[in-house]
Write a protein that binds this DNA or RNA. Structure first.
Length: 445
RNA sequence: UCCGCAGUAGCUCAAUCGGCAGAGCAAUCGGCUGUUAACCGAUGGGUUGUAGGUUCGAGUCCUACCUGCGGAGCCA
């Protein structure tokens, strides 16, 4: 009697008769022999069909079976070093084959395809092993994020997605009709996090966020997932200490669990093995000096132009890439100019022109993966900021109330899940890090 | 939004100076007992993104538009 088997466990079933339910991933046949690569969601196994060992109808069905047809097959697991697949090294000698559905001609073949075609067929592309590997790693990253926070005294407190007013910048919000009134899709849970922090001490929110920025780069999505921890009584040092432990844990967890998936992605893992706290840190002012020095020394006129920066300018993508290349780990850049950052960031006591904030830049040009800061907790300073930023005091009265009823120093940050996935997987573009990317020119499928 | 590039068979691409629209893969049929993007032989497959213009003749030149890609800005 055949037992049900997941392909990921194939090595445990050597010599046993099993049945597998799945889809035909690829096929080649050679006379009286058919090799089928069958995937079941947990892995891919080679299934070998000899003409003599099955009925004539089954053999003819196997030879003619189109890619991605669904099937059930039974057979005996045997060890064979030649057998490809994930995990591979074992194959199934097929004894019977039942076709559930003969698929139509499948558009995605094992050959090369262009990105537009693949994105149009995203619903099918997700079945290919590269996308399979990415989404498995994404799931582990999400679990690692939650595990670490849950295990370190952080409480998950959900923040709303439908919000009445802007979080940071009104021009980048998706507006929707809320029974005749405007409402907006959340672009951050930050302000609500501060409320929750005052109730629970250390909190985080984790969910999709929405930004109507007309960004068209390899690092931007209109809809992306962000985890935002917020901690009472944390200063910048405590924030940095926590962030580096957190990020190290995420990366090391993926390394320990996904050797197979990282191999499918051909990721150079030596660069990830290095990602262990502590990470280097430099100030914004030092970063600008380093960039100016690099710009002065380079012989490449294009690079020189791209690296042009004056104190006060925010760092652009080429700056972040150049800075990250100077280190073999993620690097914290701290103390940006007040003007370059959000209204709620705490000014530095010794130098009020900068705020106590930090961005974490990933290596290899993956850019900013976290952004965080101490928050202004002084009632008068917050009132003044709200005024100068022209923010509606009425709409934000609940936020301003925080500074009236037991205000405390606190800090928090946001980490973009897709950017972390892109970095850990070594992907050139963020569009593959989420199952259904929402981009400037695409909302299908 | 700005700068640059592209759109030809289901897919990836080719087509010289403006002169018969072509190959690989996929599909279909046949062959082969160890394939790893198999291989060998055969067959079918086209409104060249859309609209207009120049020309004896346009995939190729011109104009407008559409769609996508790469980069910038903004950000996580």
């Amino acid at each position: 009697m055949a037992t049900s088997m997941l392909i990921q466990d194939i090595a445990q079933y050597e010599g046993q008769e099993v049945f597998v339910r799945g889809w035909l991933y690829n096929k080649t046949h050679k006379g009286k022999l058919v090799f089928m690569q069958v995937r079941d969601g947990s892995g891919i196994a080679q299934c070998v069909i000899f003409q003599k060992e099955v009925s004539e109808a089954e053999f003819e069905a196997a030879k003619a079976l189109p890619q991605e047809s669904s099937l059930i097959l039974t057979g005996t697991v045997r060890k064979d070093e030649r057998a490809p697949g994930y995990p591979g090294g074992y194959e199934i000698g097929v004894k019977s084959l039942e076709v559930i559905q003969n698929a139509d001609e499948y558009p995605i073949t094992p050959k090369d395809h262009g990105i537009e075609f693949l994105m149009d067929n995203r619903h099918l592309w997700l079945r290919s092993s590269r996308q399979w590997a990415i989404l498995r790693i994404r799931a582990t990253i999400i679990k690692a994020i939650r595990d670490w926070l849950d295990d370190h005294g952080y409480l998950l407190v959900d923040t709303p997605i439908l919000t009445p007013a802007a979080g940071e910048n009104t021009t980048t919000l998706f507006e929707i009709d809320y029974f005749g009134e405007p409402a907006y899709l959340a672009q951050t849970g930050q302000l609500y996090n501060e409320v929750n922090m005052a109730a629970h001490g250390k909190v985080y929110c984790f969910g999709p966020t929405f930004r109507a920025e007309k960004s068209k780069t390899r690092r931007h999505l209109m809809e992306f997932w962000m985890v935002e921890p917020e901690m009472a009584f944390f200063d910048l040092d405590a924030l940095i200490g926590m962030e580096q432990e957190f990020v190290s844990y995420i990366v090391q967890t993926v390394l320990s669990k996904h050797a197979q998936e990282l191999a499918i992605l051909e990721r150079d893992t030596s660069k990830l093995e290095n990602v262990i706290a502590p990470f280097p840190r430099i100030t914004y002012t030092e970063a600008v000096a380093r960039l100016q020095k690099l710009a002065a020394e380079t012989g490449d006129p294009e690079l020189k132009e791209n690296l042009k920066i004056e104190w006060g300018d925010d760092l652009g993508a080429p700056h972040e890439t150049a800075l990250a290349e100077m280190f073999d780990k993620p690097v914290f850049v701290t103390h940006y100019p007040v003007e370059a950052k959000a209204f709620y960031m705490e000014p530095n006591k010794d130098n009020p022109r900068v705020v106590n904030c930090t961005d974490l830049l990933a290596p290899e040009g993956y850019g900013e993966i976290t952004g965080g800061s101490e928050r202004i907790f002084d009632r008068d300073l917050m009132a003044q900021r709200v005024k100068t930023m022209n923010i509606s005091e009425e709409a934000y009265s609940w936020y301003i109330d925080l500074r009236r009823f037991g205000s405390v120093p606190h800090a928090g940050f946001g980490l973009g899940v897709e950017r972390v996935v892109a970095w850990v997987c070594g992907l050139p573009h963020i569009r593959e890090t989420i199952p259904y990317p929402r981009m400037l020119n695409r909302k299908y499928p």
